[in-house]
């Protein structure tokens, strides 16, 4: 009995440590005060302020577009890389695909900036952000897809060919359904990585285009207003629904496998 109390206590403390800051943000987004200091009263004012903040809305739209486009591209590239890494094990591929994952973000940001400006002479903006996000997301998708394939019997794919499927039919009918949970998990992973990326985006954004994390950062340089809490709460809600979706479509990516 004593042991059980202790366990529950430890669990509660851990959850509190993880989720209390998030709960405070959500709570204070409804606080009727200019300051983020003490609770005054309930209001939805900050959400109205947010709805009229065109800069913030533009940044959110940019972030969403970039996250969707970058994670889609990263999912396609990463899936191909993951399959190739598992099936043919070409030398160097794994190293090349996974390096951006291990690289410190600050290094990746600087080198992408230099590459876009000095080598390609590109005008920084939506495209450069998009390209940067694809760069660091692809490796994550590849890792997840490869791990999924590694747990499978290779003779499944030979059996498909053996039973009359062309390589394409075999991919669509057998490989794709079997790795789909990995692909969905990879997509969601890239999406969340992209939508909250700050460091790399900061280097490659240029002056014209801004994303949600950059916008929030520029706001708190002035003062932390409850509007920041409101936008964070919405971002949290979006992420949470993505996780719920993922659990629904690909339960085994979130559940321990038996």
């Amino acid at each position: 009995m004593k042991r059980r109390v202790w366990l529950w206590g430890a669990a509660l403390a851990t959850y509190a440590f993880l989720y209390l800051p998030l709960a405070v943000v959500v709570l204070f987004s409804f606080n009727d005060s200019e300051l983020n200091a003490s609770w005054v009263g309930y209001t939805t004012r900050w959400y109205r302020v947010l709805a009229n903040d065109t800069d913030m809305l533009q940044a959110a739209a940019n972030s969403l577009f970039i996250a969707l486009a970058a994670s889609t591209a990263a999912t396609v590239l990463g899936t191909m890389a993951g399959i190739a890494m598992q099936r043919w094990r070409p030398p160097l591929l794994a190293f090349l695909v996974l390096t951006p994952v291990a690289m410190p973000e600050i290094l990746l940001g600087v080198s992408l900036l230099l590459f876009f400006r000095q080598v390609l002479d590109l005008t920084l903006g939506l495209f450069s952000i998009l390209a940067a996000h694809v760069t660091f997301s692809t490796g994550f998708v590849a890792i997840i897809v490869r791990a999924r394939l590694a747990g499978m019997d290779d003779s499944l794919f030979e059996a498909a060919r053996d039973l009359g499927a062309t390589p394409w039919q075999s991919f669509v009918r057998i490989t794709l359904p079997l790795i789909l949970p990995g692909i969905i998990a990879g997509f969601l992973m890239s999406f969340t990585l992209s939508i909250d990326d700050f460091v790399i985006t900061f280097f490659v954004a240029g002056v014209g285009v801004t994303t949600l994390p950059l916008q929030i950062y520029s706001m708190i340089k002035v003062a932390v207003t409850p509007e920041v809490n409101a936008v964070s709460t919405l971002l949290m809600a979006l992420t949470l629904s993505l996780i719920v979706l993922a659990a629904r479509f690909a339960p085994e990516t979130l559940r321990a496998r038996s």
Partner: peptide, 20 residues
């Protein structure tokens, strides 16, 4: 001739039944 074009089928040691 590719495996899918041969009128030959295989029963694998692991059975290789499609789990989905």
């Amino acid at each position: 001739i590719a495996p899918e074009k041969r009128p030959v089928h295989t029963v694998f040691q692991s059975y290789a039944l499609f789990p989905h």
